[in-house]
């Protein structure tokens, strides 16, 4: 089995397992995994910027929010059907990333973190400022009739799961292809040594901008899908917390691994979900898990597995 076959076999097997979940999972977990797949798509986008290109942004909630509101407001106030709204959301995420990137990429490191954080905070406040349209922190419900995609009711368990799966699968395949392509190699080179890649003739600014825009498209797609699949569009989904969450998911799963975001989002979700069964101190569980993770498995779950055993994991 060649390396390429092995890599594709692994990822297709994961996709097949997720697809099988549509019939095997009990109702509660089916909805959860559908949500995790949407959030993992968001995290995959984050991973393209952070894990592969080395851009530690604290403002991705802005791109997620652009997708969420781009799709949600058009459905709610302009009566757009779900399909075009989804597309609008994706483009809104990408466009927002391009606008932020043009400015923020003039900075690096901690300054980049703060600049992206500030832009996202401005976006969050803008949502509150326009409460007349957005209903601010309370948010809006996307009417059930509007949540129809190609004749399928996205508020029903199975179509929702399959739609989330389609989104995640498309994101995963594109990402796997991307990071193994020459473009992806340049992104990794930028992360490892920007000066050297500049000397090799690559324009770091343009390459980073491209990576950020791709990342924004992912985030926008996930945001738009979130609104349409779960029927709620609210400001808390565009708050700072939603900038930090994808970072945590990616680090937990393994930054710079293709499947890491899924593993991270899934583990985090069930960590919180199960912890409530034996303790009311749910924040403590999350906090301790993060500290232990960074102490004993700093490269995340898949990153550690790659280091110890599966050296070929992309």
């Amino acid at each position: 089995m060649t390396l390429s076959t092995r890599i594709w076999a692994l990822h297709l097997a994961v996709l097949a397992a997720l697809l099988a979940g549509s019939v095997l999972l009990p109702a509660y977990h089916q909805t959860n995994v559908a949500k995790v797949m949407v959030l993992a798509t968001y995290a995959m986008g984050y991973n393209i910027a952070f894990g592969y290109t080395g851009l530690l942004s604290l403002g991705h909630a802005l791109f997620f929010g652009a997708g969420l509101y781009g799709a949600g407001l058009l459905v709610q106030h302009a009566g757009l059907p779900a399909g075009p709204a989804l597309l609008a959301g994706i483009l809104a995420g990408g466009a927002m990333a391009a606008a932020v990137g043009l400015l923020a990429l003039r900075t690096q490191g901690v300054a980049f973190m703060i600049v992206t954080l500030m832009f996202a905070q401005a976006g969050y406040l803008t949502i509150l400022y326009n409460t007349a349209w957005t209903r601010g922190e309370e948010g809006i419900v996307i009417a059930r009739e509007a949540r129809m995609l190609f004749g399928h009711d996205l508020s029903a368990d199975l179509p929702r799961y399959l739609a989330a799966f389609a989104l995640f699968a498309a994101g995963l395949v594109v990402k796997l292809w991307l990071v193994r392509s020459p473009t992806g190699r340049v992104m990794i080179a930028l992360r490892e040594n920007e000066e050297r890649s500049r000397m090799l003739g690559y324009d770091p600014y343009a390459r980073k901008l491209a990576a950020l825009v791709i990342s924004g498209l992912y985030a926008g797609a996930a945001g738009a899908a979130y609104g349409l699949l779960f029927g709620y569009v609210g400001a808390s989904l565009a708050s700072t917390q939603y900038s930090i969450l994808p970072l945590l998911w990616v680090l937990l799963g393994g930054a710079g691994t293709v499947l890491g975001p899924l593993v991270g989002a899934l583990s985090m979700f069930y960590l919180i979900d199960y912890s409530s069964a034996f303790t009311t101190a749910s924040l403590l569980v999350v906090g301790v898990a993060l500290v232990l993770l960074v102490l004993f498995a700093p490269r995340g779950i898949l990153g550690t597995i790659r280091e110890r055993w599966l050296k070929w994991l992309p």
């Binding site: 945590l248 680090l251 924040l283 906090g287 301790v288 898990a289």
Partner: peptide, 30 residues
């Protein structure tokens, strides 16, 4: 206990201090 063992790596300390943030918040809440 924590930061020294991480060798003060920027990203690692960010994650560790986010963890610390949750632990301290829960302690205060409890």
């Amino acid at each position: 206990v924590v930061l020294k063992r991480l060798n003060y790596e920027p990203e690692a300390t960010i994650v560790a201090t986010i963890g610390l943030l949750y632990i301290l918040q829960q302690a205060a809440l409890s």
